[in-house]
């Protein structure tokens, strides 16, 4: 059943990604060059809607959240490497796959590269575990938790910020 949910969800997601024009190298790299904000509009809209929905389900007791650990070393270094790779490839992992569905051959090269990256990371894991992941490791923490305020206030502030950001995008025609 889980496999069927997976493929159905993937088809719908791939459809929305394509319809939002997110699967394109020009849009992805355009976002990184701060020339075209399509990707950010799509991504931030998805994040705010999902944040509201997920916390609603959590408050109603319908789901439980399992958070990932915060490690400054792993996330800062990993994030920077991800950014460099994203800029070179021009797709993130999910959109590389989707770009292949749109007929873009470089999506396939991206998939090959990512398989290679997966193998290299697996072999480098003992080193990462010993030296990088312990750097600034705070365990499972969330933003509302460390500030000590209700998560709905954080979501509200984030939503207000997005409204201003989106208005700015539209005013500047980004």
């Amino acid at each position: 059943m889980s496999l069927i949910y997976g493929i159905v969800t993937g088809i719908l997601f791939g459809f929305l990604l394509q319809k939002g024009h997110v699967l394109r190298y020009d849009k992805q790299v355009g976002a990184l060059r701060l020339m075209d904000m399509t990707i950010f509009k799509f991504m931030l809209s998805a994040i705010i809607v999902a944040a509201i929905g997920i916390y609603l389900l959590k408050d109603l007791g319908l789901i439980q959240l399992s958070m990932k650990s915060t490690s400054i070393g792993a996330q800062v270094i990993g994030g920077m490497l991800f950014g460099i790779g994203w800029g070179l490839l021009g797709y993130c992992p999910g959109t590389a796959v989707g770009a292949l569905g749109e007929g873009r051959i470089d999506g396939l090269w991206g998939i090959l590269g990512m398989l290679l990256g997966g193998a290299i990371y697996a072999s480098a894991f003992p080193f990462m575990k010993a030296y990088i992941i312990p750097m600034g490791n705070f365990g499972k923490i969330s933003l509302p938790q460390i500030i000590g305020i209700n998560h709905w206030i954080v979501i509200l502030i984030f939503a207000a910020f997005l409204v201003l950001l989106f208005r700015f995008f539209e005013k500047k025609n980004l």
């Binding site: 792993a74 490497l81 991800f82 460099i84 790779g85 992992p93 090269w109 590269g113 290679l116 992941i133």
Partner: peptide, 24 residues
């Protein structure tokens, strides 16, 4: 296209390495 392929493969490898290190 070869130039594009080499950069895309390299970029994919670096991006995935970074994503796994950062935890997703």
């Amino acid at each position: 296209p070869v130039k594009r392929a080499v950069v895309a493969i390299t970029g994919g490898a670096i991006a995935l390495f970074g994503a796994r290190l950062a935890g997703g």
